[in-house]
């Protein structure tokens, strides 16, 4: 008897080439949605292009010194650049961040871990509401109510912490309170008030996604609540903290009205943050806009482009970090 061994041929099945014939309505709908989505790209491109086109005149005149020159006198035919304004912008943002990030971490931890369940919803609402209060109103409140109190704090810091360079304020004669308003420090504090709700919202959301089983695991081992926060929530939420901070940084750099109301613009750089006088690109645009001639406007466009590029980079990075640390659903940032 002969046994015929059939060759072990892998039969390649032919997969169906699925064709979806969409109706006209469906095709129109998809095209419309795609077009709507594309407007955001178009808008982004247009902003960059038009600021560049309008700013070219100024860039051409100043060359690279636009980024190093302290003065801002395009209208008088003088020199101009963001060499002083940009560092001031960053300094205000850093002051704001130094306050906003720790407070937001605490507030987010409070909302997710400590607040009773009912209070949690109310607090979330309050944070949302705080984010909706116009920066104009924060600025007014800061100017009229907070600043008169903060100058005392500034003076105290200058008196007692003056050995730290950024708090050292030199004065001829005794230091009076009038040395301290409209400073980088005060502007930074007011901006921080606007950042806290935004930053808290991002962090709350990420902390809220900390895995329950790990939390319960830590508690079941006899850990304290602080232990859970330190060992589970903070490590888990690190991306949220960094992302939230960077997002706030983007906002802080671009904040206009509150800063414009608080500061008195100066164009000479200084090391300390407590004494009167500060600046920011956004405030520069808001304040100089109405009194600028053609070259002046062009210079403002160049400054605006600088700000646009910086915030775009920071925010894309922030969004990348936050989206990596959270899954799927998210509140808006």
């Amino acid at each position: 008897m002969t046994i015929t061994i059939e060759p072990d041929v892998e039969i390649v099945e032919e997969r169906i080439d699925i064709q979806v014939r969409r109706s006209t309505a469906d095709r129109v709908y998809r095209a419309a949605a795609t077009a709507a989505g594309a407007t955001t790209f178009v808008l982004m491109g247009l902003i960059g292009t038009f600021l560049l086109v309008r700013g070219t005149g100024a860039f051409r005149k100043s060359g690279f010194s636009f980024f190093t020159e302290f003065a801002w006198q395009p209208d008088l035919g003088g020199k101009f650049g963001v060499g002083a304004v940009l560092p001031y912008t960053i300094a205000i943002a850093l002051v704001a961040l130094t306050i906003a990030v720790p407070v937001s971490i605490l507030a987010a931890l409070f909302i997710t871990e400590y607040a009773p369940r009912r209070a949690r919803r109310i607090l979330t609402s309050i944070v949302d509401l705080l984010a909706a209060v116009p920066s104009l109103i924060y600025g007014l409140w800061g100017l009229f109510s907070l600043q008169p109190r903060l100058v005392k704090l500034s003076k105290w810091m200058a008196d007692h912490l003056g050995f730290i360079p950024i708090f050292r304020v030199r004065a001829e004669g005794p230091k009076t309170l009038s040395l301290f308003p409209s400073s980088t420090f005060i502007a930074g504090i007011i901006v921080s008030l606007m950042l806290i709700p935004i930053c808290t919202a991002v962090m709350r959301e990420v902390f809220g996604q900390a895995p329950t089983n790990e939390k319960e695991g830590a508690l079941a081992l006899g850990g304290t609540r602080w232990g859970v926060i330190r060992d589970v929530i903070l490590p888990f939420g690190r991306g949220g903290i960094i992302g939230g901070a960077m997002l706030s940084l983007g906002r802080a750099l671009g904040e206009t009205i509150a800063v414009t109301l608080i500061i008195s613009p100066v164009f000479t750089p200084k090391l300390d943050i407590l004494s009167q006088g500060s600046n920011s690109i956004a405030a520069l645009i808001a304040l100089k806009f109405s009194e600028s001639n053609e070259l002046g406007i062009s210079a403002l466009m160049a400054a605006g482009l600088t700000l646009f590029v910086i915030t775009l980079l920071i925010n894309s990075m922030a969004s990348f970090i936050v989206s990596k640390s959270r899954s799927g659903e998210a509140t808006e940032i």
């Binding site: 902003i47 904040e255 206009t256 956004a282 808001a286 700000l307 646009f308 925010n315």
Partner: peptide, 11 residues
Amino acid sequence: TDAMSAVPSIV
């Protein structure tokens, strides 16, 4: 969209 949602309002 993320990047644009934080364009400074003055810009």
